[in-house]
């Protein structure tokens, strides 16, 4: 059964049709990649699923229940975690406080006016940080993290509410190749072990082709292709608008462009 059903979703800004009638499903335990050129409408889709934007038309259903016009807060309680394209954490917090905050919210313990935060859910927070490889930085101030680490922290935050569905907008942007693969492998493990479904966008094709169960391609706000890695890769339309020749993400085909002579 589908965890997430997106049907006929549309959104315009002024005259620009950013998303124009998009329909797709995410199955339980599926690792689904949403790819497409810059400005295709991927983040806008995310923002509608997550409640940051209200769709002009169409519906979003989580486990059969419509969430299309709920607030981000309600959608989080319904079991959707999210990471942002421009990573967002609480800059004045330590790393662990960021995660503790999410845990407190998940447990409904925000409106407690006494008792320090320090020990609350500390072990659990550290366990979450450990999962994303950040446990050793728990007590650093989060504003001084390198960008790639901010991304990992964000993932830990998003995992705090045991989500059914994880929305990740370019989760590995700014990370080194190995960490990138490790992080995605970790997310993939969550998918398999805990039955979490993941919808993510990426411009890193190494990651997409290696890990995604299925790929949905968006261009100019419309769905132009859908399928597994091999079929997407072979799709001429997708190559034309998005993949190009593949030389920047494939070792083997890495023909040097004419003009760049080896020194």
């Amino acid at each position: 059964m589908s965890v997430l059903e997106v049907a006929g979703l549309a959104k315009s800004f002024g005259g620009v049709k950013a998303v124009d009638g998009v329909t797709f499903n995410v199955e339980r335990g599926e690792f689904l990649a949403l790819i497409g050129p810059n400005g295709a409408g991927k983040s806008t889709c995310f923002n509608m699923i997550n409640g940051q934007l209200t769709p002009d038309a169409g519906d979003v259903r989580l486990d059969g229940r419509s969430i299309a016009r709920l607030s981000p807060r309600q959608i989080w309680s319904a079991g959707v975690g999210r990471t942002f394209q421009i990573a967002a954490t609480f800059a004045s917090f330590t790393v662990i406080e960021n995660v503790q905050m999410a845990l407190l919210s998940h447990r409904g313990e925000v409106y407690r006016f006494v008792g320090g935060v320090g020990p609350r859910h500390r072990e659990e927070a550290i366990a979450l940080l450990d999962r994303v490889g950040m446990a050793d930085q728990s007590y650093r101030s989060s504003r001084e993290l390198a960008y790639g680490d901010v991304k990992r922290l964000e993932l830990a935050i998003a995992l705090a509410n045991d989500p059914k569905l994880l929305l990740m907008d370019e989760p590995t942007a700014g990370m080194a190749t190995k960490e990138r693969n490790e992080l995605i492998a970790l997310v993939k493990r969550l998918v398999v072990e805990h039955g979490i479904s993941v919808l993510f966008t990426e411009h890193s094709m190494d990651v997409v082709f290696t890990f995604a169960d299925r790929i949905v391609v968006l261009a100019r706000g419309r769905l132009i292709a859908e399928g597994d890695a091999a079929s997407i890769r072979a799709n001429k339309d997708v190559q034309a608008v998005y993949l190009g020749t593949g030389k920047v993400f494939e070792r083997k085909g890495a023909a040097r462009p004419s003009g760049a002579q080896a020194p």
Binding site: N50, Q52, S71, P72, R73, W76, S77, R82, F84, A88, T89, F90, A91, S92, F93, E97, Q100, M101, A102, L104, S105, H106, E109, V110, Y111, R112, F113, V114, G115, G116, V117, R120, I157, A160, N161
Partner: peptide, 24 residues
């Protein structure tokens, strides 16, 4: 220093993020 204070500071730091983790 209590959970509410942490929530208050979270909202100040980043309202978008705060809403996305369920804070009102």
């Amino acid at each position: 220093f209590a959970p509410f204070g942490l929530g208050l500071r979270a909202v100040r730091d980043n309202p978008l993020r705060a809403a996305a983790i369920g804070l009102d």
